[in-house]
Design a protein around this nucleic acid. Structure first.
Lengths: 217, 217
DNA sequence: CTCGTGATTGACTGACCAGTCAATCTGTCC
DNA sequence: GGACAGATTGACTGGTCAGTCAATCACGAG
């Protein structure tokens, strides 16, 4: 199937699959995975009900696909960041930036991934626990190296540090998703700095560091 | 109904309601709210199907009740902590302790609250967003006061600090719930310190603070 | 003993919806 | 043109379950 000559056919086929996936993002974001019907996705995509099952084995597989597509990109991005020869703080900033920018670029997709998979570890995320853990582990690796180099304190375990970092990021996205936090270009940039500042620098006022972003004493 | 003389009747009635609620916790924890059937709860409680609807308007109302009961206690606990005249760090430690101990005392209930409500803001938590926000706000208030007193830095907003703190706590509980993190008495105690240490002190190695692993000031 | 009220029972119903499938369409290849 | 393959359609089925309800029970009061 899909011989070299059949480019046009295959292109069209791939497109419909994509159309369905994109529609699913919108529907999941709007109604939630459990609440929506497969027919809602078909309607949103402007295709017949049955076509959804031509391209996907089940409703679950659609969410699955959406998550894995995006999570793989995230994992690659973290690895890429880790390869660079820059200070931890910059690595963490780069990771926070990547995730925040993902949200900026496609809030609906990120909403689905966070709300329906990452934060729904019971229902659906269970299947993907390994993937999610992989992200934690990569971050922990970055922290552990910095600890060995003496840049980060060692009495907070790397695993725990990764948890706290990821927790802050997820919490911020969740805040945006449910409008607990104001959104906007400025807020996105600010959040990146705040996350890294909080996790690396800590909340307590110290002598050494007071970079004060336009602040007064 | 429930005349003064009818103590025994009322007691029995209240008990069955409680039996159903407790059974629901076990069932929700084991199978998840969406996956379980009302008949599973009835079976677990050892009562007839219909009795569940005698005490609760709907399946949702059971989860509702469970969440609100517990969340009210949490909110009171935070307020109580805030009333005390102790340093921020100790206040945050007390809050972290309360939540960790809640988990220690009743992991199934906390699992249900975290997984099915708090982390499931889309499906169910939406109804309780205001309650959840209330907890954030109370924490933010504590941070804000400490900022005014000059104990905490002011370039990280109080709202954001609360988010990061709560995020760390929730992330740790989630780690325990899904066995990403080892559980046990020692781990529970350790977690309380790590959360506060990370959020207040930050991950970076500094001159002033270096309370090596086992020690306390 | 009898009445009444609330507790308790579990069979039943009505709605919903994921997934199936047989029919039809579209385009390619020879 | 004919035949084949995959794309596309949407009506239909089968199973699931939340919630209802009429019947029965348990017990206190008079």
């Amino acid at each position: 199937m899909a011989r070299a000559s059949g480019g046009a056919v295959e292109r069209r086929a791939v497109d419909k699959r994509r159309v369905i996936l994109d529609a699913a993002v919108r529907v999941f974001a709007r109604q939630g995975f459990h609440t929506c019907r497969v027919s809602d996705i078909a309607d949103e995509a402007g295709v017949a009900y049955g076509l959804v099952y031509h391209y996907f084995k089940s409703k679950d597989e659609i969410l699955d696909t959406l998550f894995l597509e995006r999570w793989d990109i995230l994992l690659s991005a973290i690895q890429e960041v880790d390869r660079q020869e820059i200070p931890v703080r910059e690595k963490l900033f780069a990771i926070a930036s990547f995730i925040v920018d993902s949200y900026r670029h496609d809030p609906e997709l990120m909403k689905v991934i966070i709300v329906e998979v990452t934060r729904a570890a019971n229902t659906f995320g269970r299947t993907h626990l390994a993937q999610i853990r992989e992200a934690y582990d990569q971050i922990a690796t970055i922290v552990a190296r910095a600890q060995r180099e003496g840049v980060l304190r060692s009495d907070v375990t790397a695993d725990f540090a990764a948890l706290a970092f990821y927790g802050a990021v997820e919490q911020v996205l969740t805040g945006w998703i449910f409008a607990l936090l104001p959104t906007g270009e400025r807020e996105y940039e600010e959040a990146k700095h705040l996350i890294v500042e909080t996790i690396c620098g800590g909340l307590e006022r110290t002598e050494g560091q007071r970079p004060a972003a336009g602040s007064r004493d």
